[in-house]
Design a protein around this nucleic acid. Structure first.
Lengths: 110, 110
DNA sequence: ATTTATTATCGTAATATTGCAATATAAATA
DNA sequence: TATTTATATTGCAATATTACGATAATAAAT
């Protein structure tokens, strides 16, 4: 045991879970926020922005990339990272759906 | 090692990470979707809706509750679970911010 | 070609998560 | 009160995540 039973859930559920999981670490939230703040593809200095070692940051970047939340391209002898919109779009839609539901019908039982 | 360095990040970053992490499992996405679908506090049959054992579902419910995404109250000899709006609001705002940023300025470098 | 700078991978230790059987708890009902 | 019903907790095994030092890989600059 210990492994998630992904095959028992829908593709959509697994996809959302992967995206949410990728954001489920403060370092990865910090990376996303930084990429938004500088408003550009950022080449390099993400490591300097975080209180973590270079290998650890590299690993977090890899996870965000695998989840489809950021993308990176080679730019000289550094790598250019930026936000990948399609990935974010999926989560955004999920929360929009939730908001719609909650706005339409307020159940008061709890 | 192995423990997340929460004290090196801001409160907001940790808070968002906790919320995202709670949604980072297909079973918990499924629970949220079910609570939305039935559009009511649901008393009981969540276990029947999921391909997991009762203790496992109970544990997932606990995690969603700890993260502030759902709330539960005792209702006879069962428990009434429903979505906790303030918790969802925080993540929604995070994604709205991201959307705004991306809408305003499209960088084409990647 | 060698150095320098930047990012990725490997190896490993510490910790966390996932899942379930067994058991406990609490309320309703016979 | 005993029984049923619904949910929670405990304990444990399997697996995943987090973090970093050491090392490798890559590409520009010298």
């Amino acid at each position: 045991m210990g492994a998630t039973k992904t095959d028992h859930f829908t593709e959509s559920q697994n996809e959302l879970a992967v995206l949410a999981k990728a954001l489920g670490h403060p370092a990865r939230i910090a990376i996303m926020e930084y990429l938004l703040k500088v408003d550009a593809c950022i080449c390099g200095d993400i490591v300097n922005e975080l209180p973590l070692s270079q290998p650890t940051v590299s690993q977090h970047l890899k996870e965000l990339k695998n989840a489809g939340l950021i993308k990176g391209s080679i730019e000289g002898n550094s790598i250019c990272y930026c936000i990948n919109e399609p990935g974010l779009e999926k989560i955004k839609v999920f929360f929009e759906h939730i908001s719609d539901h909650l706005a339409n019908k307020r159940n008061e039982c709890c």
